[in-house]
């Protein structure tokens, strides 16, 4: 009992508790026994992966005490660029992928520079990037989806072949039991875990979020730490954009609208504090699964979208209330 209590007092324990609670709900409201089929869980993991990848970058930024509203737009921009390079120009993946990651990194570093160098509030700086990147995506694509269908001068459509990279990313492996994008998501989680817990720069992120002035006077390179966080958030946005393009088989300039809010919800439901200085990627992983199962359970029980949104809002609030650090 005491061990249980100690667990519940830790943020990981509470995040796990929230997830278990959702799973119990899933077992009870189990339309057509869908919850006991592996395919349901595989699909949940696949559907939450793109959001989860964004949430990894969001976590790094939140740890520094900031927020990144631009990730959804960076996703859209990178999906467009990836589709143009790979689908239209036929560049091989080893060229196209690094190029797209560079685009994401540039967007993230630009927000990071605005925050770190020019001391613009993260909310404002990334709001500006959110609007700018969406505009850039529309400009590059001419406002059209970049798909296999190419309009000829005579008005008819011809179709280009889908590059192998698209198929491989949208595939399932291990006997069709795990989606590739889920593995990409887990790779992003692992990378973030290494950065946050094993690297010196990870410690700099926590110190910056915990007390920026004390960190600066302790010799912590606060600016570079912030640049790293926003830069990596941009790279994760690019990874998510590539995955999204592969799943949709096109680069949609409207892709990723409002995804930043889901990414924030995932980080917060996991128990990361927006005040910064605390939290970790494990919490984000648990948060992603909680949100993913919630969506899945509501959809297999055929709950209407209107009710689904209202329920999700209520549950986000409940989860955060549950996880609030007890004050004395």
């Amino acid at each position: 009992m005491r061990t249980l209590r100690r667990w519940i007092e830790r943020p990981e324990g509470r995040a796990l508790f929230a997830l278990l609670f959702i799973l119990v709900i899933g077992c009870v409201f189990n339309a057509h026994d869908a919850f006991f089929r592996w395919g349901t869980h595989r699909d949940m993991l696949r559907q939450v992966s793109v959001y989860g990848i964004l949430a990894c970058g969001m976590t790094l930024v939140i740890v520094t005490g900031g927020i990144d509203l631009s990730v959804g737009s960076v996703l859209g921009l990178c999906a467009v660029v990836f589709a143009q390079l790979s689908l239209r120009r036929g560049l091989p993946a080893p060229v196209a992928v690094p190029a797209v990651l560079a685009v994401g990194a540039a967007a993230g570093l630009a927000s990071g520079a605005a925050v770190a160098r020019y001391r613009i509030q993260p909310f404002i700086a990334t709001l500006a990037m959110m609007v700018f990147a969406r505009g850039l995506a529309k400009w590059l694509s001419g406002g059209e989806k970049v798909s296999r269908a190419v309009q000829q001068p005579d008005g008819s459509f011809s179709y280009v072949d889908l590059p192998g990279a698209f198929e491989r990313l949208d595939a399932k492996v291990w006997g069709g039991n795990v989606a590739v994008v889920t593995l990409v998501f887990l790779g992003c989680v692992a990378l973030s875990w290494v950065v946050l817990t094993r690297l010196r720069y990870g410690r700099y992120l926590y110190a910056t979020g915990g007390n920026e002035e004390a960190a600066r006077l302790s010799g912590v390179p606060v600016r570079r730490a912030k640049l790293l966080a926003y830069g990596m958030s941009g790279v994760f946005g690019a990874v998510a954009g590539i995955c999204q393009a592969a799943q949709e088989q096109q680069g949609d300039p409207e892709a990723g609208v409002s995804y930043e809010l889901t990414a924030i919800a995932i980080a917060v439901i996991g128990g990361n504090s927006l005040a910064g200085g605390r939290g970790g990627i494990g919490l984000t992983l648990l948060g992603a699964m909680t949100i993913g199962y919630l969506e899945k359970i509501l959809s297999i029980n055929a709950v209407a979208e209107s009710s689904r949104l209202m329920l999700t809002g209520a549950i986000i609030l409940a989860a955060v209330l549950l996880q609030r650090r007890r004050i004395e």
Partner: peptide, 8 residues
Amino acid sequence: NTGLVLGM
């Protein structure tokens, strides 16, 4: 405010 990161 400037000495320690009290949450760490």
